[in-house]
Simulated assay, not measured.
Amino acid sequence: MNRLVRHLRDGVAPLVDLVYPPRCPLCGCAIASQSGLCADCWSELRIPGEPACATCQRPLEGTAAQDGAVCAVCLAKPPKHDGIAAGTLYSDGSRKLVLSLKHGRRIALAPLMARLIAARLPQLEGEWIVVPVPLHRWRLWSRGFNQAALLAREIARLKGAKLVVDGLLRTKRTPMLGGLGKRARARVLAGALAAHPQRLAEIEGAQVILVDDVLTSGATSDACVGTLKRAGATKVIVACFARVLDEVDGHAPVPQTETPGALTPGVP
């Protein structure tokens, strides 16, 4: 069936390209295929590299860092998660993609963004499930989709893992987190997340890829990881498209009064 789908897709691709010439989804320039960015927009993305922290993939300064080196942040406070896989570091380019997907409703960007995330995931041994960071039902109804769920679906397909789209529930509607410190965000999120009662059997004993579009302070992901582990998950890797690092000299500094994933007023 997959082979038939590929043949059909490849067969109609020239016709689609003729009717809808491939354009970069960010700037509109002509490109070779429907599934990428132009060279200039690719250059705006900051892809994490080596050396990096063995625990959280935070870039480490210098080239002499040994394999297994751990960053100062993880040494000072060992994280709840079992690793972070970020497709990009937060920059002008990643910000444009996030906003286009999340608030511009350009859901066709999800496969491209998911491929960048999947490329940063470690070799997965055994069975894994993929769980997106949830939205509250009112926000989901108003937006029409959960961008984290779109990314999670693509990652599950790419990695051959099982998608559990409703593994987590946001049981309490929370205000915008922009401008709040990590502790304040944690207080706001206290009691706002729960494992879905009908998915407990799938979570217990599972290895989980937790998916979100942007990782800022880590308060939301920490709350999700804690909820999953209390439900019996044995391992949780946080997978995101854009990761904000204050110490990285990016081209799109994050204002203290807003969160990258909540740049539209009233739509956190």
Rank of each mutant, 00 (worst) to 15 (best):
A110W: 06
L112P: 09
M113F: 00
R115V: 09
A118L: 15
A119G: 13
P122V: 10
L124D: 03
E125I: 12
G126E: 00
W141G: 13
W141A: 15
R143D: 04
R143E: 13
G144D: 09
N146Y: 07
Q147A: 01
L151I: 04
A156W: 01
A156Q: 05
R157C: 05
L158F: 04
L168Y: 00
T174L: 14
P175V: 10
L177P: 03
G178W: 04
G178T: 06
G179I: 03
A184S: 12
R185D: 08
G191H: 14
A192K: 06
A192I: 02
A194Q: 10
A194F: 10
A194D: 11
H196D: 13
E202C: 11
E204Y: 06
I209K: 10
I209W: 01
L210Q: 07
V214C: 09
V214K: 10
L215E: 07
S217V: 12
S217T: 15
G218E: 12
A219M: 02
A219H: 04
T220W: 08
A223S: 10
C224Y: 00
G226T: 00
L228R: 02
K229F: 08
R230T: 11
A231E: 05
A231D: 01
A231I: 05
K235W: 12
K235Q: 14
K235L: 15
K235A: 10
V238D: 06
A239Q: 15
A239R: 11
A239T: 07
A242P: 05
G250I: 07
